[in-house]
Design a protein around this nucleic acid. Structure first.
Length: 197
DNA sequence: ACAATTTGACCGCT
DNA sequence: AGCGGTCAAATTGT
């Protein structure tokens, strides 16, 4: 699952996209074709929780302020530290010209999640917030594994090092997409032809 | 001191 | 051989 999230500018620094989970960076590599290096993250509580969820963050060379986050695997640990409440705590004080009207909150702000589904839900919020926030020339939001097909997922079964398996991508996506009621909010994003690229 | 982050090296695949 | 990805060791911050 690949997601593009616009970073917010805090002075001169950009904040890394946080989906509400704790990630520990385990590597960084410069990718050919990209001006910016790619960062590799793993769940902080990989151990004990057995959360094999991974995340790759790479800045778009087209939009340095946009992060392309590639989620791999599913999370088993929802030990979020400050998620599920974005719509209230978002004073967005850093901005001054990008968001003069304030951000449109989500109609379904789940202050009390229930299960793993909460992840997708809060993710959605986090997303909507970002989008409603500084909607610049944000092109596509969620791009499938390629861009054209729907769920055209190949079968990458590369074994590396002998510990990891593959990327059961779309699991999270599937969750949020299939959120049913909550999914409607997402639908708005997909229907948003705000792309000009 | 611990945990997290950073940088480099190594491994596996194309 | 090159690129992409992960792990390991060292360093920094809390």
């Amino acid at each position: 699952m690949i997601v593009r999230v616009p970073a917010r500018r805090a002075g001169n620094m950009e904040i890394p996209p946080d989906d509400g989970y704790t990630w520990r960076k385990y590597g960084q590599k410069e990718i050919l074709g990209s001006k910016f290096p790619r960062s590799y993250y793993r769940c902080t509580h990989k151990s004990y929780y057995g959360c094999e969820a991974k995340k790759q963050v790479q800045r778009l060379d087209d939009d340095p302020y946009t992060y392309e986050v590639k989620y791999c695997g599913t999370h088993s640990c929802q030990t979020s530290t400050a998620p599920l409440l974005i719509p209230s705590m978002a004073p967005t004080n850093d901005n001054s010209s990008s968001n003069p009207q304030g951000e449109a909150l989500m109609p379904e702000a789940p202050a009390q999640p229930h299960s793993s589904l909460l992840a997708s839900t809060e993710l959605g919020i986090w997303f909507s917030r970002e989008f409603e926030h500084g909607q610049r020339e944000t092109q596509p939001l969620i791009v499938p594994h390629g861009g054209e097909g729907s769920s055209t997922q190949a079968g990458p079964s590369h074994l590396q090092g002998g510990r990891e398996v593959d990327c059961p991508v779309a699991d999270l996506a599937d969750a949020m997409f299939n959120s049913g009621s909550s999914g409607s909010s997402m639908d708005a994003f997909f229907s948003q032809p705000s792309q000009d690229n």
